[in-house]
Amino acid sequence: MSEKNTYLPYLMTIEKITKEAPGVKTFRLKFQDEAEAATFEFQAGQFGEYSAFGEGESTFCIASSPTRNGYIECTFRDTGRVTSGLSSLEEGSTMGFRGPYGNVFPMDEWKGKNLLFIAGGIALPPMRCLIWNALDLRENFRDITIVYGARTVKDLVYKSELKEWEERPDVRMVTTVDPGGETPDWKGEVGFVPTVVEKVAPSAENTIAIVCGPPVMIKFTFPVLEKLGFRDDQIYTTLENRMKCGVGKCGRCNVGKLYVCKDGPVFSKEELNLIPAEEY
């Protein structure tokens, strides 16, 4: 029987480790098997199961863009047994990866539109994949606005990339920290993400808004977008329910009749309306 074992991970070498914020790291991973590397493909929005051998698996999105070949990246915070195990690994060590899983952002449908990215805290990684993907195909889109917020200046991730986006003339970048989280030399905004979105007030005309963040941020950002005139089919988000298998079998991420791992993690607000909000 040559059937593939879904649970058997690819072996990956940690090529580069970047410290993003306290407890937050980005790993650049390369496939140890060249044949696997050659056939591996993914799209923005997809996720995977990352293994620390000896600790278990944890679910994160693929944080690098599919337009950047030869590696994948993941960004995670050291919060539990697996992430702490991963965090203790050094460059050159081996870890596991299963994926890509889940659906994708419908970027083809967004051609010719303005994109508004709204992200909070550690939820920038899924967005980062999409942002780089959009920037690498810049001519496909019109105005690109990024609103990114974290609790404090220290908690902002991808700092050098934030700077790069800020300096690009073809991106409007707004960075904010929660009140009290600013440093004396902080030049960005101070305020919660939904408030800042309202202040920045991008036009809803021909715009797609993508919101990634903790459930509470999403909950408060949706009404703001609605006020700005965004329809439900113009708003997208990713859900991050607890998962184990990633492939629709273990039962954990079942929300209403949908499975976040199969039907998501990308959902338009229109689709979200079909499932009970209390379950995600």
């Binding site: 649970y7 293994s51 051998f53 000896g54 600790e55 278990g56 698996e57 184990k244 298998c245 079998k249 273990c250 039962g251 954990r252």
Partner: peptide, 22 residues
């Protein structure tokens, strides 16, 4: 009922990934 958990059985440098009922 098929819901399951995935766990790690570790013995030094060796280990097994285990699927168990949940």
């Amino acid at each position: 009922c098929a819901c399951f958990d995935i766990q790690e059985d570790v013995h030094g440098s060796k280990g097994r990934r285990i699927r168990c009922w949940d």
